[in-house]
Amino acid sequence: MPQSLPRRSLLSGASALIASSVLSGCGGDSDDDTKDRVSKQAAPQAGSSGLEKTSITVGAIPILDDAPLYLAIRDGYFKAVGLDVRAEAIPGGAAGIPRLGKDLDITFGNYVSFIQAHTKGLDLRVESDGFQATTDTFGLMVAPGGDMRSPADLKGRTVAVNIRSNILHLLMLSLLSAHNVNEKDVTFVEVPFPDMGTALKKGKVDAAVMVEPFITGAQKDFGAEQLGDVISGPTENLPIAGYACTARWAKENPNTALAFARAMVQAQHECSDRRTVTGILPSYTKIDRQTAAIVRVGAFPATLNPTRIQRVADLMHRFGWLKQKFDVTAMVA
């Protein structure tokens, strides 16, 4: 794959991708809102006065899910639409939200955190989809040789999540419910993704909800085993995360927001090829190329589809995280 694409080629290619009803890596989903938005607005040209901001900072997590963002930076997709994008590392999506409109223009984050923030009064707009989980991409991992055989054995145990009350916590509640385990029977503790393997290895936690590339890293390092798959049953193929900004920022910077979304369409599409994802992983994580080559790769939808994201809000309502049902259409650009 070439390191950069001509501006005109990138913009026309992005428009074609958005207009297509079948896109690699997004399960054939299309999104009328996204197509209408793109068709009604002219694409900002690189270096033109059409961009309200040409330099933006995006909150990012050094995990597999953010591969398209780093790809768009490395291969010049943002530069092709006139943007200079800097990725700012954050520990989780919830940590990036309070920084929006301050030192972050846009942040990557899980949909649970976005929905929670929106329902509490922070008007957010999701500008690009990010990652959709598939089987075995999110694992409930334990150290080898233990006495636990299924999630039903987690009663009285400690489980690590990167941040409480986020998407991983919610996924665990769904898995526990399927095995007749009450949330109160489990102690959830916060452990950053890069530290989960070490916490398991040293016995600081009994189990950890891990993501790639750290699952594969822990399996290679000390033989970590999967106790359960949190992406199963009602959470199968669940949308996990995307890129959002405040509604105010989007209103003040409509062309910049559109330029960002267009470049991400191209990057998300490119990441439908697992070799693209595994190839860029070592550049922004501590995973070596040998480990990166065997990680499990999920899906990177190239269109925003409120119907898919609605599944997250409905799951939150089911477990009492939302007192009332919430229509996500209000926060999808």
Rank of each mutant, 00 (worst) to 15 (best):
I61R: 09
K204H: 15
D31I: 10
G223Y: 04
G320R: 09
L304M: 12
N253P: 02
A95N: 11
I97N: 00
P91Q: 02
N162M: 13
V265N: 08
M316F: 03
H179K: 06
R318E: 15
A330Q: 11
A160C: 01
H169P: 11
I280F: 07
A19H: 14
D195H: 12
Q226C: 11
G130V: 00
E52N: 07
T235W: 13
V205A: 06
A46V: 08
A178T: 11
L140A: 02
C26Y: 10
N166C: 14
V189Y: 05
M264Y: 04
D221H: 13
D273E: 09
I61A: 08
A133D: 11
A87T: 08
Q324P: 06
G242A: 05
A42T: 14
P213W: 00
N237I: 07
V211S: 11
L83G: 00
A117M: 03
T291D: 07
K40C: 11
A263S: 03
T134W: 13
H169V: 06
K323C: 09
R74W: 01
P234H: 07
L10W: 02
S12P: 07
K184R: 14
R262L: 15
S113M: 11
N305Y: 13
G50V: 07
E270M: 13
A244T: 01
R74I: 02
D314R: 13
R74E: 11
F319A: 03
A60Y: 04
D185L: 02
D65V: 10
G101R: 00
V22S: 14
A152K: 11
T285P: 10
Y243M: 04
V209M: 09
N237Q: 12
D273T: 05
D185T: 01
T119A: 08
L281M: 08
A80E: 00
V230W: 05
D136C: 13
L170E: 05
P234V: 07
S24G: 15
Q116E: 14
E236G: 10
V230N: 01
G47R: 06
I240E: 12
G242F: 03
L64Q: 09
I163T: 15
D75F: 06
P6K: 14
A152E: 08
G25K: 03
P192M: 00
G59K: 04
L17Y: 02
L23R: 15
L170C: 03
V161R: 08
L170I: 08
P98L: 10
S272M: 07
T235C: 12
S4Y: 12
L5S: 13
L154V: 09
R7D: 15
T246R: 00
I18Y: 05
T158V: 12
A259H: 04
A117C: 02
V209S: 05
S39V: 05
R274N: 14
D129H: 15
G146Q: 14
E183I: 08
